[in-house]
Amino acid sequence: MGSSFSSGVSRTNLKSNGIHWQGNVSTPSGTNNRSQGIEWQRHIRYYSYASTGNLDLDISDLQKHINQDRFEMLYLYKTPLSEYQWTNTIFFHVYVIFYTNTPEGGFWWSLEKTGQSLILQMSRDIEDVKDRLEGGRRVSEGSSWYWEPQFIIRDSSWETFETLYKFIIVDKDQLNIRYNFAEENCKNFAKIVFDRIATNKNWNYII
């Protein structure tokens, strides 16, 4: 459950905090790379989906969002580790979706940990961040009769984007924590994020 963040912290500066924000080209449609990660990369990969549905790699507006946006709702969703799994009881990939309402309108975001890095996505349309990862579908269309992104839990939130950013980068030092399938995985990361900014709930899962 979220708690108030200490006051008096200077505004986040993406250009001076030493963190590598990488805007990547999209992977081919119907693919993702969470199972292909070989070496942990100390950066956050950021993707913005333009109104055309294509990827926009410009991070110029991200500074403003982190410094000004406040969350209203957050959700956890899951997809398969393999598209041919027969059960979703234990083995699945988890990601966080949250909604911010700004003077420019509402924005949907997804945040997750893969085998290579942390990934942040933004769109006006929830379907972009819920169903897509780095430009490709999270679950390849036509290759799975059982799986689609599945809802797990939701809650309200009143935390700021800046609070979450500093919690992940400074307090939890997540950029220096390599992915580990047994412990430091997508589930653990999603739980850390959800429990920190959710107003009323915590997420409990089977390891």
Rank of each mutant, 00 (worst) to 15 (best):
M1V: 11
G2N: 07
S3T: 09
S4R: 09
S4H: 11
S7D: 06
S7L: 06
S7E: 08
G8A: 06
S10C: 01
R11D: 04
R11Y: 00
N13K: 10
S16Q: 11
N17C: 15
G18T: 12
G18I: 11
H20N: 14
H20D: 14
H20S: 13
G23A: 13
V25S: 12
T27F: 07
T27E: 05
P28I: 08
G30V: 09
G30W: 05
G30M: 08
N32M: 01
Q36W: 00
Q36P: 00
G37D: 02
G37C: 03
G37N: 03
Q41I: 13
Q41L: 11
I44V: 15
Y47L: 03
Y49K: 02
Y49L: 01
N54Q: 14
N54K: 14
L55D: 02
D56H: 06
L57N: 11
L57K: 10
D58E: 05
I59V: 12
S60R: 05
L62K: 03
L62S: 05
Q63M: 02
Q63A: 11
K64D: 13
N67I: 05
N67V: 09
N67P: 03
Q68E: 15
Q68L: 10
Q68R: 10
Y77F: 14
S82D: 12
Y84A: 11
T87K: 08
T87I: 05
F91P: 00
F92Q: 07
H93L: 03
I97C: 11
F98C: 12
Y99P: 00
N101G: 01
T102G: 04
E104R: 09
F107Y: 15
W108E: 05
L111F: 15
L111M: 14
T114N: 07
L118K: 10
L118V: 13
I119T: 14
L120W: 14
D125R: 13
D125M: 03
D125E: 07
E127P: 00
K130T: 06
R132S: 06
G135R: 09
R137G: 08
G142Y: 10
G142I: 10
Y146W: 12
R154Y: 06
R154P: 00
R154W: 05
S156D: 11
S157W: 09
T160R: 12
T163N: 11
Y165M: 06
K166I: 03
V170F: 04
K172R: 15
N176D: 14
N180P: 02
E183L: 09
E184V: 10
E184W: 08
N185Q: 08
N188S: 15
I192D: 14
V193M: 11
R196L: 03
T199V: 05
K201S: 12
N202H: 08
W203R: 05
Y205R: 04
Y205T: 14
I206P: 07
I206A: 10
